[in-house]
Design a protein around this nucleic acid. Structure first.
Length: 232
DNA sequence: GCCAACGTTGGC
DNA sequence: GCCAACGTTGGC
C-alpha cells in the first residue's frame, strides 16, 4: 500500500525538501516499544548511528524489499493501486514511496541511501511476488500525503510542525527476468530453514506485514540468482 | 471473502 | 505499564 500514483516529478521539485524532513524525528518511535526494544539511544537522533536496524538484524542492510499493491482497491475513497507498471510510466520512471504508515517500515526507509537497490514486491493480489528492481534516488523526506485529507493515507494525528511519516523516491530499474512468486520464495525459505541457506531468516516470512524490509546481501544475491533458474 | 498475524489504542 | 479490543495487512 504504499505509494500512490503520485507523480514524482513533482517530488523532485517539491517544496518539501529533505531539510524539512530531516527526520521528523521527534516522533520517535512509539512503535518500537512493541518489540520491547527501544534501543535507539534515547535521543540520539541522528541515525547515522546505524548499521543496525531495529531488530538488530545484520548490519547495514543495503538492499530492500518494498511492497505495493498492483490491483485496484479503494481505501478512504481512493484507489491505492500502484504496481511496477505504474512506476515505470511516471516521468523519469521515478516516484515517491508515500503512504507508509508503520513505524518500523518508516524507520527502514529513513535508513535508505541513494543508490541502494530494492525489489518491487506485488502484494495483496492474485500473484504476489517480486516483479522488478528499483533504486533509491532520494533519501527520506516528509511524506506530504499524511496531511492531505483526500489521500488514502491521511493521518489526522500528524502535525505539520512534527510530521510522523517519511517517504523516499525510487526509480524503476528493470523488471526481473521472470516474475519471482511468493510461493517459490517460501519454498526456499522453508528449505533453508530446515537445512540452512540464505533465505532462512528472510523478513518476508519472519515479519509478516512489514511493508518495507531490509535484505542482507546474501538474501538479495540469492533471490536475484533465481532469475536465471527455472521456477521450482 | 475469510481469517491469522500482529500493530495500535485506550481504559484502568 | 498491562492488556483487551480493535484495526490493518496480506495470503489464500
Amino acid at each position: 500500500m504504499p505509494p500512490k500514483k503520485r507523480t514524482r516529478s513533482s517530488a523532485k521539485s517539491n517544496k518539501h525538501t529533505d531539510a524539512d524532513a530531516q527526520h521528523g524525528e521527534g516522533s520517535d518511535d512509539v512503535a518500537q516499544l512493541k518489540t520491547g526494544k527501544r534501543k535507539r539511544s534515547a535521543g540520539v537522533k541522528s541515525d547515522v548511528e546505524k548499521n543496525k536496524n531495529d531488530d538488530g538484524r545484520k548490519t547495514s542492510c543495503s538492499h530492500w524489499l518494498m511492497k505495493s499493491e498492483p490491483e485496484s482497491r479503494i481505501e478512504n475513497g481512493v484507489d491505492v493501486k500502484f504496481g511496477i507498471e505504474d512506476l515505470k510510466v511516471l516521468p523519469d520512471q521515478t516516484g515517491c514511496w508515500d503512504g507508509v504508515r508503520n513505524y518500523q517500515a518508516r524507520n527502514f526507509m529513513r535508513d535508505m541511501k541513494v543508490g541502494q537497490q530494492a525489489f518491487f514486491y506485488h502484494s495483496n493480489c492474485k500473484e504476489p511476488g517480486i516483479a522488478g528492481l528499483m533504486k533509491i534516488v532520494k533519501e527520506a523526506y516528509v511524506d506530504h500525503t499524511q496531511f492531505d485529507k483526500k489521500d488514502a493515507h491521511y493521518d489526522p494525528s500528524s502535525k505539520a510542525d512534527n510530521p510522523k511519516w517519511s517517504m523516499v523516491d525510487v526509480q524503476f530499474e528493470r523488471m526481473t527476468k521472470r516474475f519471482i512468486p511468493l510461493t517459490e520464495l517460501k519454498k526456499y525459505h522453508l528449505q533453508h530453514k530446515a537445512k540452512g541457506g540464505p533465505l532462512k531468516d528472510m523478513a518476508l516470512f519472519t515479519r509478516a506485514r512489514l511493508s518495507v524490509q531490509p535484505l542482507t546481501a546474501e538474501e538479495y544475491d540469492f533471490i536475484l540468482s533465481l532469475e536465471n533458474e527455472d521456477p521450482i
